[in-house]
Simulated scan of single mutants.
Amino acid sequence: MAADFLLYGSYGYTGRLIAERARAQGLTPLLAGRDAGALAAQAAELGMPHRAFALDDAAALDAALRETRVVLHAAGPFSRTARPMVDACLRTGVHYLDITGELGVFEMVAALDGKARAAGVMMMPGAGFDVVPSDCLAAHLKRRLPSATSLTLAFQAIGGASRGTLTTMAENAGEGGAVRRGGRIVRVPAAYRSMQVDFGRGPVTVTTIPWGDVSTAFHSTGIPDVEVYTRVPARQVRLLRATRRLGWLMGSAPVQGLMKRAIRRGPPGPTPEQRERGASLLWGRVEDADGRRAVTRLRTPEGYTLTARTAVEAVRRVRAGEAPAGFQTPSRAYGADWITEFEGVEREDVE
Rank of each mutant, 00 (worst) to 15 (best):
L6F: 11
L7Q: 08
Y11L: 01
G15L: 02
R16M: 12
I18G: 00
A22E: 00
L27H: 04
Q42G: 07
L46Q: 03
M48L: 13
R51S: 12
D56V: 08
A58P: 10
A59W: 09
A59C: 07
D62R: 05
R66V: 00
G76T: 11
R83C: 13
M85L: 05
M85Y: 08
D87E: 13
L90M: 11
R91Y: 00
Y96K: 06
D98F: 06
T100W: 11
E102H: 13
E102I: 06
D113K: 05
G114T: 12
A118T: 12
G120V: 11
M122Q: 15
G128F: 13
V131C: 11
V132Y: 04
H140L: 15
R163D: 10
M169Y: 15
E175N: 08
G177M: 05
I185M: 02
Q196R: 08
G202P: 14
G202E: 12
T207D: 07
T216P: 12
S220Y: 09
T230W: 06
T230S: 07
V232Y: 03
P233Q: 00
A234S: 05
A242L: 14
G247R: 05
W248R: 03
L249F: 08
S252V: 07
S252H: 09
Q256L: 07
A262T: 07
R265I: 06
R265Q: 15
G269I: 11
P272T: 02
P272F: 03
E273C: 03
W283P: 01
R285E: 15
R285N: 12
R285H: 13
E287L: 01
D290Y: 07
E302V: 03
G303Q: 12
G303D: 09
Y304A: 08
T305Y: 04
L306R: 04
T310P: 09
R316M: 11
R316V: 13
R317M: 01
R319D: 12
A320L: 02
G321Y: 04
P324Q: 06
A333T: 08
E343C: 00
E348G: 05
